[in-house]
Amino acid sequence: VQTVGQWLESIGLPQYENHLMANGFDNVQFMGSNVMEDQDLLEIGILNSGHRQRILQAIQLL
């Protein structure tokens, strides 16, 4: 089972590990259960829309 940090590294966005972990997104399986939306990522400080889309697309593959 991948950690959130390993998963972010695999999609090329390791800089957001602290954003996700500090806001309770600390379990890759949980994130894959379709609980995260674009607005959630924006609210936790991921401002780059391309990065948000990449995260959301990768979540669909979990």
Rank of each mutant, 00 (worst) to 15 (best):
S49K: 14
N27R: 09
M31K: 06
A22P: 01
D26C: 10
N18G: 12
Q29D: 14
N27P: 08
D38I: 00
R54F: 03
A22W: 06
V35D: 15
N34H: 14
G24R: 04
I46F: 00
M21G: 05
S49T: 11
N27V: 11
N34I: 15
I55P: 01
I11A: 02
R52A: 00
I59G: 06
G50L: 05
S49V: 11
R52S: 02
E43Q: 13
D40G: 06
M21I: 13
L61P: 07
L8F: 03
A58L: 02
Q2H: 10
F30V: 15
V4Y: 00
E37N: 14
L56E: 02
L61F: 10
V28A: 06
G12K: 04
Q2P: 12
N34V: 14
V1T: 10
M36Y: 11
G24L: 05
Q29F: 10
I46E: 03
A58T: 04
Q29H: 12
N48K: 07
V28N: 05
L41W: 01
I46N: 01
L61E: 15
Q2T: 10
E17L: 08
G45E: 03
I55E: 01
Q57N: 12
S33G: 11
M31I: 14
L62R: 04
M31R: 06
G24C: 04
G12Y: 03
H19S: 11
G12N: 05
I46Y: 02
L20A: 00
E9K: 12
Q6H: 08
A22F: 07
M31D: 08
N18S: 14
H19K: 14
M21A: 09
Q39E: 12
L62S: 06
F30C: 15
R54K: 13
L13E: 02
I44N: 03
R52H: 02
V28H: 05
L41T: 00
D26H: 09
H51Q: 02
L41C: 00
I55R: 02
N34G: 13
V28E: 06
G24N: 06
M31S: 07
Q60A: 15
F30R: 15
Q39D: 13
E9V: 07
I46S: 04
F30T: 15
D38W: 00
G12R: 04
Q53T: 13
M31C: 10
E37V: 11
M36L: 13
G50E: 03
F25E: 03
G5F: 08
Q15N: 00
N34M: 12
F25H: 08
I44Q: 03
E17M: 07
L42E: 11
Q2I: 15
S49C: 11
L13A: 01
V28S: 06
S49Q: 11
H19Y: 09
L62M: 07
I46K: 00
Q2L: 11
Y16G: 02
D38A: 06
Q29P: 10
G32M: 14
G5A: 15
N34E: 11
Q29N: 13
I59W: 14
M31Q: 06
L62T: 05
I59C: 12
L62F: 11
H19T: 15
Q29W: 15
N27K: 11
H19L: 14
P14Y: 03
L8Y: 00
L41K: 01
N34P: 09
E9L: 10
E37I: 08
L13H: 00
V4G: 03
I44A: 10
Q53P: 00
I46Q: 02
M21E: 07
D26S: 12
A22K: 14
Q6F: 04
E37W: 07
A58Y: 04
Q53I: 10
M36S: 10
H51M: 00
E17N: 05
A22G: 08
G32H: 13
Q2V: 11
R54W: 03
V4F: 05
N23K: 10
S49E: 14
A22Y: 07
V35H: 12
N48W: 00
R54N: 05
Y16I: 01
L13I: 04
G32E: 13
L8Q: 00
E17A: 10
L61T: 13
D38T: 05
E37K: 15
M21K: 13
Q29E: 15
L56F: 07
V4R: 01
T3K: 08
R54E: 07
G50A: 04
Q2D: 08
I44M: 14
D26F: 08
L56N: 04
A58F: 01
G32D: 12
M36I: 12
N27W: 06
Q2R: 11
L42C: 09
A22Q: 13
Q2G: 10
E43M: 10
Q29T: 12
V4P: 03
E37T: 13
H51S: 02
E37P: 04
Q53H: 11
R52Q: 00
Q2K: 14
R52E: 02
T3N: 07
E37F: 08
A22M: 12
P14W: 02
E43G: 10
D40A: 08
M21H: 07
D38G: 05
A58D: 04
I59A: 14
V35R: 13
M21Y: 06
Q2F: 12
F25G: 03
E9W: 07
L41Y: 00
R52C: 02
T3V: 02
L56M: 12
L47E: 15
R54P: 01
